[in-house]
């Protein structure tokens, strides 16, 4: 009888102990599983144009740390691709007071309003600002992308 009591007690207590012991060291306990890097997209200063990074479509791949990146960006007006005459890119990391380690530039116009940008490299995790200054038939305008680079 005593033995049966001991067995059944352990039988019920064990799952509770497992739950109790696992609590503080749950691997996912501190991880914000819902955090998703937002798409790389910006309105221009004059709010007439938008800029989005088409490729890589995955924002994490598009902002991979320490790699030379190639982006395909699209500029739109009223939802339609919009060609510009020139694009200049600069930026940096405001929290550390430095600019870009590389000089990214447009290396090809792939189609109307779509441009290949090469030479991007994010060398530190954290928040970066990337400015695209453009000239078009609408005059000068600028996009500022805020980018969170992870590990």
């Amino acid at each position: 009888m005593k033995r049966r009591f001991f067995c059944s007690t352990l039988f019920f207590i064990t799952p509770l102990l497992i739950l109790a012991c696992n609590g503080p060291s749950d691997p996912g306990s501190n991880f914000s599983s819902g955090s998703v890097t937002p798409p790389l997209f910006a309105h221009s200063v004059k709010s007439l144009l938008t800029l989005s990074v088409i490729e890589p479509a995955d924002p994490k791949r598009a902002t991979a740390l320490g790699q030379y990146l190639v982006w395909l960006v699209q500029i739109d007006r009223n939802g339609e691709p919009f060609p510009v005459n020139a694009i200049s890119i600069d930026g940096g990391m405001p929290a550390h007071g430095h600019g870009l380690p590389t000089q990214p530039r447009v290396t090809a116009q792939v189609s109307e309003g779509r441009y290949r940008v090469e030479g991007l490299k994010f060398t530190m995790p954290g928040r970066w600002i990337l400015n695209f200054t453009v000239s078009s038939k609408l005059g000068n305008d600028r996009f500022s992308l805020e980018i969170d680079v992870g590990h």
Binding site: L10, I18, N22, P24, S25, F31, S33
Partner: peptide, 16 residues
């Protein structure tokens, strides 16, 4: 099972 359950965890979040 009790022993396994009470063995030390790694103590890191998934992000860490």
């Amino acid at each position: 099972l009790v022993c396994l359950a009470c063995s030390p965890g790694h103590g890191w979040s998934e992000q860490e």
